[in-house]
Amino acid sequence: MLHGIWVLMVEKGWLLALLRGAGITLLIGFLGVVVGLAAAIPLAILRWRQVPILSQLVDAYSIVIRGVPGLLVIYLLFFGSVDWVQRIASAFGYADSAENAYPFLIGIIAIAAISCAYSIEVIRGALQAVPIGLLEAARSLSLSPRVTFSRVTLPLALRLALGGINNVWQMTIKDTSLVSVVGMQELMRAAAVAAGITRSPLLFYCLAAAMFFAMTAVSQVLFNRAEKHFNRGFSRG
């Protein structure tokens, strides 16, 4: 039994395939969260400032994406874009490279679109939670609105947003498994391929689960540390 697993994992190289998949999962997850967060900050500010029309549009985006399964969003982006991506790529003569890079790119865009919707809510909540007295104090020092925002509001809000960002990150790591259904070679897909060829789905899916668990557990520890760092100087409430 143990020898059989050893042969399967090491000599046939499936462990390496899974680890490679895990690396891609982390990469998609990381890029997805970073891109999502970068897009979410301006959008959250629009919502926070209640800019007419734009704020409603952001709201609608966030409600739809958060109310609809991630799988559906991924189908929309994949099936909806296959056609015109091919057309644009062949128009510029990059048909081959588009075929290779395309699933990866759309995968990141899909994951980013989902994580962005959740990040908007997190950041808006954090911006609203910044005590109004501090903002008034900044104004009474006649700091310009831009300085107030970048030196007072944003740092305070980011501290408050950290817990929420952690949630978004953990959720996103788990959501990356969804892009496997459209053939992206991440951890879940690697496990499915290995399970299909070796006919031992229990082993490989459990291994994939263990790897996902390791990722979320490690990031939880790191975030706890970061939270402690950012909360230094604040009394524990």
Partner: peptide
């Protein structure tokens, strides 16, 4: 809570 639901569903349906 630490693993994706997709993995859980696959472990249950294909694995078990």
């Amino acid at each position: 809570r630490g693993t994706p639901m997709l993995v859980q569903i696959f472990v249950i349906y294909y694995g078990l």
